[in-house]
Amino acid sequence: MELSKSIEDVLSKAVRILPDDVEKAIREALKSERDSKGRLVLEKIVQNIEVSSSTTLPLCQDCGMFYVWVEVGDRARFSMSALEDEIYKGCENAAKNAFYRKSIVNEPVFERDNSKTNLPPVINYELKRGSSDISIHFLLKGFGSENCSSVRMINPTAGEEGVVNAVLDMMKKAGGKPCPPVFLGVGIGGTMDRAAMLSKKALMRDVDSFNPDKRYHLLEERLIREINALGIGPGGLGGDNTCLSVKIETAPTHIAGLPVSLSVNCWADRKATLIIPGGYDGISSSTI
């Protein structure tokens, strides 16, 4: 199968059907929720998941902006231009054939003219040593929640408490706006933009994954606890379940800084992954 067709297929599914780990987290939240309004919101979310998975309707009218994270093995066949052509084509065809709302404007300030294709996607690349594959991770990034994402440059001596306070403050300001219960990615370290990219990378991890460094794993769990203690609740109407997942990714940083970035995703945490064994250069045949 053509690579663009495989991309179209995974994106056509992702706009209607949540990944298993995400749906499981939402169903568990409904079981644990004690607040009556919180339960009502979660019941509607579960009904919505059932409608979209059994019809051709997207989960949400905001079908998001295509966000793509490509991991390229150092032993993989790789042509960046050939791969990008396939990604663009796959995204465009999915947006057209799977009834995505066209939500992308070509120019951000003056014209704000709709691209009518949902192109371009945002694409990042990362080298993965020891691998001969290319892994493409897709996120359909809705903007009600993206408007609640941000970066804080906190004091380098602020430590764990500083990180926790920054994230809690961002979540308090977000309140019900990002359609909770939310899924969060936290990027810590690097530069301002590196932290922001790491927060998106973190958001792409599975719900049941955890940071391999025990200290950060504990910090992921602490953030979930403290965010849920805010009581924002499903739909912002109050309750036990404000946040279902926090994933942290870190990078080395400068002695004078401690960048902390939060990427907020709504309950419709729409993701897909495609692995191309051997890589892709547009010339040799690939099996997907």
């Binding site: 209607r16 919101v41 509607k44 979310i45 009904q47 919505n48 409608v51 979209s52 019809t55 309707l57 997207p58 989960l59 949400c60 009218q61 905001d62 809705g142 009600g144 019900g176 359609c179 739909g235 709504c266 309950w267 419709a268």
Partner: peptide
Amino acid sequence: FGGCGALYAS
């Protein structure tokens, strides 16, 4: 209910 686009379509 935020995000429940398919439900409202019905």
